[in-house]
Design a protein around this nucleic acid. Sequence first.
DNA 1: ACCTGAACACCGTTCAAGT
DNA 2: ACCTGAACACCGTTCAAGT
Lengths: 211, 211
Amino acid sequence: MAQLRREDVLAGALDLVDAEGLDALTMRKLAASLHVQAGALYWHFDCKRALVDAMAERLAAGVGGPVATGGGTWDEQLTELAVRLRKALLAHRDGARVVTETACAAGGANTLLVGRTSTELLITAGFPPEQATWLTFALIHYVLGQTMGEQARAEFAARGGPGTAQAATASEEEGNEAYRRLRASAQSADPDEQFAYALSVFLDGIKHRLP
Amino acid sequence: MAQLRREDVLAGALDLVDAEGLDALTMRKLAASLHVQAGALYWHFDCKRALVDAMAERLAAGVGGPVATGGGTWDEQLTELAVRLRKALLAHRDGARVVTETACAAGGANTLLVGRTSTELLITAGFPPEQATWLTFALIHYVLGQTMGEQARAEFAARGGPGTAQAATASEEEGNEAYRRLRASAQSADPDEQFAYALSVFLDGIKHRLP
DNA sequence: ACCTGAACACCGTTCAAGT
DNA sequence: ACCTGAACACCGTTCAAGT
């Protein structure tokens, strides 16, 4: 076995998360999968957090790149950007959680680039810089939240989590049960369709607000 | 010291999170703060996850309640609902994380009620049930994401996290640095204003999509 | 019914010492 | 430069035994 490169650690971490989920990502398990002792990983990464940050950067690679392939309008390009981000998050198990944990506070070059590209599109469209960044944040947070919820449901289904707190009073529970069914049926629909719909609604709002 | 009630454990957990953040919430620390052994907590809660679920339920209490206080229009009521949710999340440190970890997959009676109320408002407004639930999800995910980002930044500032992955090439870093400044200045503005703006834009989109 | 004491099977991280 | 071995200071969870 050749010497371990930082690159190999990153790839091993992604593989482990894909195979067992983010909660199973452990420095010790990762080390074992790379046939190395746990301490060895700290030569390549300062701490676990730095490793997860690097994973987020890897996931976001390319997403913020140029969008003007077909010379579409700015709102088509913004839609394309959101769809690319979502696709990137879905490419790996728990991908949205990986990016959210890191991007909300710090954010590396690739995750920053996504926000930057969106903001530039909105400024070009005519928004003041401040509003452009606000709408960018809203858009990215929506994509992250929606996709995280989707993946969380997948994890929940895969494992079968513990019960849901406790029961409420009978009357409340009755109405909520009806809503639960409605929600479940709505979610059995194509998640991509759901995402595309809400995204287009938000973009409609942005278009109508254009100064 | 009287006997420990489930209620006391919940209150102690909320206090601990407020004082030290969600990452510091540990069954052992919580037990110590209640002057009890760690194992004792498992009499009141099946596992840590169940405790956090109960915390989320507590945070969401009342948010989904009736909104028609002033007889406003449906979109005013929906705005009020979103504002109430946000306020509830901000009432406790890491509140958005607490609710997100639990609500994305399972969801207790109170968290369900928020979605139910929103969906009913949109159905009353004229949306088909399926679209009403989709827009509800989008709205809630936006509120959760935006607030979580805000609180994550607060945590980051309070502690000073580890560095941001690694440097990119000089040209990339230059443009991103400019964006980073823009973003920072936009975020130094009032978060409530930022939230209200993006929320009204999304609601504009919803109004224009009304069948 | 409610809690203690003590254990089990893990964690992330550090660091001398090896090669 | 890169890794091992072994430790340190923690975790969540379980469970006999006490009261």
